[in-house]
Amino acid sequence: MDQYVTLIATAAMGLESVVANEVKELGYEVTVENGKVIFDAPVSAIPRCNLWIRTGDRIKLLVGEFDATSFEALFEGTKSLPWESFISEDGQFPVIGKSVKSQLYSVPDCQAIVKKSVAERLKLKYGLASKMPETGALHRIEVAILKDKVTLTLDTSGSGLHKRGYRIDQGEAPLKETMAAALLKLTNWKPDYPLIDPFCGSGTIPIEAALIGQNIAPGFNRDFASQGWDFVKDTYWDEAFEEAEDKANYDQKLQIIGSDVDHNMIKISKGNAREAGLGDLVDWKQMQVKDLFLRKENGYIISNPPYGERIGDLKEIAAMHKDLGAIMRDHPSWSVYIITAFEDFEKHYGQKATKKRKLFNGFIRTDYYQYFGKKVGGR
Rank of each mutant, 00 (worst) to 15 (best):
Q3D: 11
T6K: 13
T10H: 05
E16L: 00
S17A: 14
N21F: 03
N21R: 15
V23G: 01
L26E: 15
V30D: 03
T31W: 09
E33N: 13
N34E: 14
P42L: 10
A45V: 09
R48K: 15
R48S: 12
R58S: 07
K60D: 14
G64F: 11
F66G: 04
A68L: 09
F75E: 13
L81N: 06
F86K: 00
D90S: 11
K98A: 12
Q103K: 15
Y105K: 11
C110E: 10
V114T: 09
K116N: 13
S117Q: 07
E120V: 07
E120R: 10
L122K: 06
P133T: 05
L138V: 11
L146P: 00
T156G: 08
G158V: 05
G160M: 14
L161P: 04
K163H: 14
G165Q: 04
Y166D: 01
A181I: 02
L183G: 09
K185H: 13
T187L: 11
W189F: 03
P191R: 10
P194H: 09
P198L: 06
A210P: 01
N215C: 07
A217M: 08
D230S: 10
W237P: 01
A244D: 04
E245T: 11
Q252S: 05
I256G: 01
H263T: 07
N264L: 09
R274E: 14
E275N: 14
K296I: 01
E297D: 14
E297W: 09
I301V: 15
N304K: 06
K315R: 12
A319N: 13
L324E: 02
I338E: 03
T340M: 08
F342L: 01
E346P: 02
E346C: 02
F363E: 08
R365S: 12
Y371A: 05
G377F: 12
G377V: 07
G378N: 12
